[in-house]
């Protein structure tokens, strides 16, 4: 039995069951209605999950299965992106983007490389400014300006 494959198969089956559960909340009419195709899809997902589960249980486990990579960096990156999206309205695009870029550069910098804080800060501010100016003034895209609204719009 391969643990990873078994977990994936269970997730596939679970996704089908979850989808089927959501379909139960939809209004039902006679004949073919808005639930027909989703129901077929849900049962297909459950069936495919079970086929995959049967295969995973049959296959012998591999002793040298891949371990996890640097999940701390992944978690930090996800948190930074989520924080960035949440900060877009209150802080505005230029400020939120500059802060996000600076922090993301730091998080992704390889361990053997130095961390040139001043260069990263300059790059982050410049990139945020160029992107904002290009889309705001070049393409008339009203990106959120936040506290800088009086100066930028």
């Amino acid at each position: 039995m391969r643990l990873k494959d078994t977990l994936v198969a269970l997730a596939m089956t679970g996704a089908g069951l979850g989808y089927l559960g959501m379909i139960a909340g939809l209004p039902v009419r006679d004949g073919v209605d808005a639930t027909t195709v989703p129901t077929i899809l849900a049962w297909m997902m459950i069936g495919l999950g079970l086929i995959e589960l049967a295969g995973a249980l049959r296959r012998p486990g591999e002793p040298g299965e891949k371990g996890v990579g640097n999940m701390v960096t992944v978690a930090l990156t996800l948190a930074l992106i989520a924080g960035y999206v949440a900060a877009l309205r209150p802080l505005g695009f230029p400020i939120a983007t500059a802060i996000y870029l600076f922090l993301q550069f730091l998080v992704l910098t390889p361990r053997d490389g130095g961390r040139p804080f001043a260069r990263y800060a300059g790059l982050a501010v410049m990139a945020a400014g160029v992107i904002f100016a290009t889309f705001r003034y070049g393409f008339d895209l009203l990106l959120p300006a936040g506290p800088l609204v009086a100066w930028l719009n």
């Binding site: 992106i81 960035y84 999206v85 877009l88 309205r89 983007t97 996000y100 870029l101 993301q104 550069f105 992704l108 910098t109 390889p110 790059l123 990139a127 945020a128 992107i131 889309f135 393409f139 895209l141 009203l142 990106l143 959120p144």
Partner: peptide, 28 residues
């Protein structure tokens, strides 16, 4: 370097998503 390029690309992706309907929802 990818650690410089990819965050900038993410910002452009966010701009592209926002530009569809001016909604932060699309970035989420």
């Amino acid at each position: 370097p990818k650690h410089i390029l990819l965050p900038v690309i993410l910002v452009l992706c966010a701009v592209g998503a926002f530009g569809l309907a001016s909604r932060v929802f699309d970035i989420w």
